[in-house]
C-alpha cells in the first residue's frame, strides 16, 4: 500500500470540498472494496476522505409511500429493515444473497452501488486492463471469462458489475440522490452505471467528487416479486446470473406489468426492457416467459468461456417468472434453476 493522508469529513459539504481539485483523493465508506484495492495496488490515492460517519444512516418513509435510504445505511441493516422486508422483499433478498454477514455489516448502500468489478484481471495489477489503465488492453478477452459479460460488452472490456443490491434497485425503479459541486442531482439507478464502450475506466456517470447521499425507492409496485441468484457455490459468491423480477397480473389473469433486471451478465445492472415489453398484456405461461427471455437474450454475445450464461439466464428468467405466476407448486419451475 502506498502512503496516503487521512481525513474524516465533518459533513457532506466538507466531503465535497475535500475532493474538489484533488483528483488524487477518494472517499472511504465501509471500506470493504476500497481497502482491498489499496492493498492490491489497484488504486494509490494521496488522500482518503472518510465519509463513513456522515449523518446518512436513516431509512425513512416518503410522503408518496416510497422509501429514502441514506447512503451510509449498512447492507445488513437495510436487508433487515421492517419496511424493506415487508414492502420490497426483492431488495432484502438481493442484499442477503451478497457477500457475508461480516461484510454486510460494514458495506454501505452508496458503497455497494460504487463497488468495482471482480474481474480477476482488473484486480491483478500485473496484467493489462483497460478499466484499470486505459489503453493497455483487455486480458479477459482471451482469458478466463466465466464471470464475464454476455450483454452490452465492448472490445475494450467484458467485465460485469458485481452488485446484487443494484440489480434489485434497477428493477424497483430506484433513484440515486447525488450531491455535486453544482447542487443535487437525481439519477435513476438504471442510468447510474455505464456500458464499457471505449471508456471502461468509467464505471458510472458520476464525476470525481460527486457524493451519493441517498437512494429513493418509489412506492412498492403491485404483484409478487423476488430475487434469484445462481452462482458456483451456495453462499458467499458472486452471481453467474441473477434475476430480480416483479410480476403483476390483472383481473383477467393477464400480465399487467413485469419488471425484470439481470445481474452477472453486463457491465451494469441490466434492466430487461425487451422481455418486459413482450410480457405486457401476455398470458402468464411458459410460452410467453420463453419468448420474453429469448427476446432479451437475442443480442447476447457470449465468449466460449461464458456461453453457458445464455441458457442459464434464459432458464432463470423463465423459472422466476413461472414461480411468480403462481406455478411454483407444480413440477415445472420450482426446483429448476436451469
Amino acid at each position: 500500500m502506498r502512503p496516503f493522508d487521512y481525513q474524516r469529513a465533518a459533513d457532506t459539504d466538507d466531503a465535497l470540498i475535500a475532493l474538489a481539485d484533488r483528483p488524487d483523493a477518494v472517499y472511504l465508506a465501509g471500506g470493504t472494496n476500497l481497502v482491498d484495492h489499496l492493498k492490491l495496488g489497484i488504486i494509490a490515492p494521496n488522500l482518503v476522505v472518510d465519509i463513513s460517519r456522515l449523518d446518512l444512516e436513516q431509512v425513512s418513509e416518503l410522503d408518496d409511500h416510497g422509501l429514502r435510504i441514506g447512503a451510509m445505511v449498512r447492507n445488513s441493516d437495510l436487508a433487515a429493515h421492517p419496511l424493506v422486508r415487508a414492502n420490497y422483499p426483492m431488495l432484502s433478498r438481493a442484499l442477503l444473497s451478497g457477500a457475508s454477514g461480516q461484510l454486510r455489516n460494514a458495506a454501505t448502500t452508496g458503497g455497494n452501488l460504487l463497488q468495482r468489478t471482480r474481474c480477476v484481471y482488473f484486480q491483478d495489477a500485473s496484467t493489462p486492463c483497460n478499466k484499470r489503465e486505459p489503453g493497455t488492453g483487455c486480458s479477459a478477452l482471451e482469458g478466463f471469462t466465466r464471470n464475464h459479460a454476455i450483454l452490452g460488452a465492448s472490445s475494450s472490456c467484458i467485465a460485469t458489475h458485481p452488485s446484487d443490491m443494484a440489480v434489485a434497485m434497477a428493477a424497483l425503479d430506484a433513484e440515486v440522490i447525488v450531491l455535486t459541486e453544482n447542487g443535487e442531482r437525481r439519477i435513476p439507478v438504471v442510468d447510474l452505471h455505464r456500458l464499457p464502450g471505449e471508456e471502461p475506466n468509467r464505471d458510472t456517470v458520476l464525476n470525481h467528487g460527486d457524493l451519493i447521499v441517498a437512494v429513493e425507492l418509489p412506492a412498492p409496485g403491485r404483484g409478487r416479486s423476488t430475487y434469484r441468484k445462481i452462482r458456483d457455490r451456495a453462499s458467499y459468491a458472486f452471481a453467474l446470473v441473477s434475476v430480480a423480477a416483479r410480476l403483476d397480473l390483472d383481473e383477467a389473469g393477464r400480465i399487467r406489468e413485469a419488471a425484470i433486471a439481470l445481474g452477472g451478465v453486463a457491465h451494469k445492472p441490466w434492466r430487461a426492457t425487451r422481455a418486459e415489453e413482450v410480457l405486457q398484456g401476455a398470458e402468464p405461461n411458459r410460452e410467453s416467459f420463453t419468448r420474453a427471455a429469448e427476446a432479451e437474450l437475442e443480442s447476447a454475445q457470449p465468449l466460449p468461456g461464458n456461453a453457458f450464461k445464455v441458457p442459464m439466464a434464459r432458464g432463470a428468467i423463465i423459472s422466476v417468472l413461472t414461480e411468480l405466476a403462481g406455478r411454483s407448486g407444480s413440477s415445472e419451475g420450482a426446483d429448476d434453476d436451469g
Binding site: 414492502n87 420490497y88 422483499p89 426483492m90 433478498r93 444473497s97 412498492p220 409496485g221 403491485r222 404483484g223 409478487r224 416479486s225 423476488t226 430475487y227 434469484r228 441468484k229 445462481i230 452462482r231 451456495a234 453462499s235 416483479r246 414461480e323 411468480l324 411454483s328 434453476d337
Partner: peptide
Amino acid sequence: PMTARAGDEESR
C-alpha cells in the same frame, strides 16, 4: 445445495 434461492412472496 447448488442453488441459493430466494422464496417468493407477496408484495403489496
